[in-house]
């Protein structure tokens, strides 16, 4: 019945559907690990993927990602719903790559097919997806509030160099706190525009104008919010750091770091 009004595919996508930085509560090994450990592990694997992008690296990273997914005992529903146009773009890329052909060639029923292009395309796409998936694993298994203190501890050595580490950590903590407010504001902003000007935009000029209007409104609203926050911060006696990091490292942290380091070494060796 409801399909007649709102078939799932036609449902208007909203910003909140992106599930950016959304935590899935749980007590799996990956949940218990310190946020900083997970950040370091992602950094190690990302270094491997960016500097040694081979099929072997991509395979290793895929194993690491899948292992992490299992170690987090996540439900399948956490997977983001990819907009249809992304599939189309990917398919278009695949067709182009396939048509372009190239080494290696295989014989298939008398026809000679070059798999070189599609091979490169698949590798490139896989590495891109893996980088996103690693970040998603962190978000799914780490409460938002753990991120800023963890980064504070990781960045602590830079304090000696006179870098404004405390400023960065405080800004990040406040930024993470305000992110849901901002996302909600953007949602209202988009809706508000739709009620004021429902007509589809025509031409580059109209799009540019609309973008300028929306951005100015968003900026003005954000600055107003900042003013209120600033007054509240003064009311707390000024800027000060987030609570001290109290998380104790456990065996699971050692495992995660050890494994990702091993993966990185493997990526370097097999390149």
């Amino acid at each position: 019945m409801s399909e007649a009004v709102a078939p799932a595919g036609r449902r208007r996508r909203q910003l909140a559907d992106l599930h950016v930085l959304r935590y899935v509560p749980g007590a799996a090994p990956l949940h218990r690990a310190w946020a900083g450990t997970k950040i370091l592990a992602i950094a190690l694997l990302s270094i491997g993927l960016v500097f040694f992008p081979t099929w072997a690296s991509a395979g290793l990273a895929a194993a690491a990602t899948a292992g992490g997914f299992l170690a987090a005992r996540l439900p399948a529903g956490v997977m983001p719903r990819v907009p249809r146009w992304i599939w189309l773009v990917l398919a278009f890329g695949a067709v182009l790559a396939f048509v372009a052909s190239g080494k290696p060639y295989v014989e298939l029923g008398g026809a000679r097919l070059g798999l070189g292009g599609i091979d490169e395309w698949a590798e490139f796409t896989l590495i891109g997806v893996e980088i996103l998936a690693l970040a998603a694993l962190l978000a799914w298994t780490t409460p938002l509030s753990d991120l800023a203190p963890a980064l504070g501890r990781l960045l602590a050595p830079f304090r000696r160099l006179g870098l404004p580490v405390d400023d960065v950590v405080a800004t990040m903590a406040l930024g993470i706190r305000c992110l849901p407010l901002l996302v909600e504001e953007m949602r209202v902003l988009a809706a508000a525009r739709r009620t004021r000007r429902p007509e589809p935009l025509r031409g580059l000029k109209e799009i540019a104008e609309a973008a300028e209007e929306l951005l100015f409104t968003a900026l003005s609203s954000a600055l107003r919010r900042a003013r209120e926050l600033a007054e509240a911060i003064e009311g707390r006696g000024g800027v000060a750091v987030t609570p001290p990091e109290t998380h104790r490292l456990a065996a699971v942290d050692g495992w995660i770091l050890g494994l990702s380091a091993a993966f990185l070494v493997a990526m370097v060796i097999v390149r």
């Binding site: 800004t171 900026l219 954000a222 900042a226 926050l229």
Partner: peptide
């Protein structure tokens, strides 16, 4: 950073991120 600077830095960084 002063409170006014910090708050604007946080909020505008968020906007860029979104």
């Amino acid at each position: 950073l002063r409170p006014g600077e910090l708050a604007e830095a946080a909020v505008l960084a968020d906007l860029a991120l979104v």
